[in-house]
């Protein structure tokens, strides 16, 4: 096992719907950790990501060898879609910091009458009661403001970094965005990042 500098462990789960850019976000966070010389290990389940399924990433910072996170052991949960944040609550505990987008993307099962979309306000209260802290805002709106709905992932990343719950620095994340995102989209993504950071400050 590779010896890395000792530090406490932070466990982050990101849940999203296929196509929302979860894997890119995880990559950016991983690169940022690498740039900051913070030990990082990640895993992802994305077999059917392109077919509308759920995509879950686990990112473990610090002194741990495992790449996955057990139920009840996430320190931070970032949800790109509110019903997916709800579904992932089993990963949380009474101390978990939850950051979620509030704009719903109902699965197709709802349209064909094979499922009911939960009431957003109820979900919010529930998360507040069951976890340590909730930061909930319409990240889809901010993404459109930045220039494209596709930037939702970077808006949430901006909020997470600004809230100070991840061990990666703002500078390293920005540098990772600059190297990981296609050149033409860097500016737009940096704007999304700032809008997310602003939302974090408003929702403190």
């Amino acid at each position: 096992m590779m010896k890395e500098k000792n530090m406490t462990t932070t466990r982050l789960i990101i849940v999203a719907v296929g196509g929302q850019g979860n894997l890119l976000t995880s990559r950016i966070i991983g690169e940022a950790a690498l740039l900051s010389d913070i030990p990082v290990r990640m895993s992802e389940i994305h077999g059917m990501a392109q077919r509308g399924g759920v995509v879950e990433s686990a990112i473990v910072f610090g002194d741990a060898s495992s790449t996955i996170i057990s139920d009840g052991e996430a320190d931070v949960l970032i949800g790109f879609e509110p019903s997916e944040t709800l579904r992932a609550l089993n990963k949380c505990n009474a101390g978990t910091f939850v950051i979620t987008n509030t704009a719903p993307s109902p699965p197709f099962t709802v349209a064909i009458g094979r499922g009911t979309y939960p009431d957003p306000e109820h979900v919010k209260r529930l998360i507040q009661n069951k976890t340590g802290r909730l930061m909930a805002f319409d990240a889809a709106k901010l993404a459109r403001e930045a220039g494209t709905a596709m930037a939702l992932n970077i808006v949430l990343l901006g909020a997470a970094v600004e809230s100070g719950t991840l061990p990666v620095s703002r500078e390293s994340v920005i540098e990772a965005i600059e190297t990981r995102v296609k050149k033409d989209f860097v500016e737009l993504n940096l704007k999304a990042f700032e809008l997310g950071a602003g939302a974090a400050n408003e929702n403190r």
Binding site: G72, L89, N90, A94, F108, V110, G115, Y117
Partner: peptide, 22 residues
């Protein structure tokens, strides 16, 4: 210490999101 998973018995169920043909 076992991890303390929150009691989610009162939580509404998220609608299933199975993968689908594109």
């Amino acid at each position: 210490d076992a991890p303390k998973i929150p009691d989610l018995s009162d939580a509404p169920e998220s609608p299933a999101r199975p993968p689908n043909l594109c």
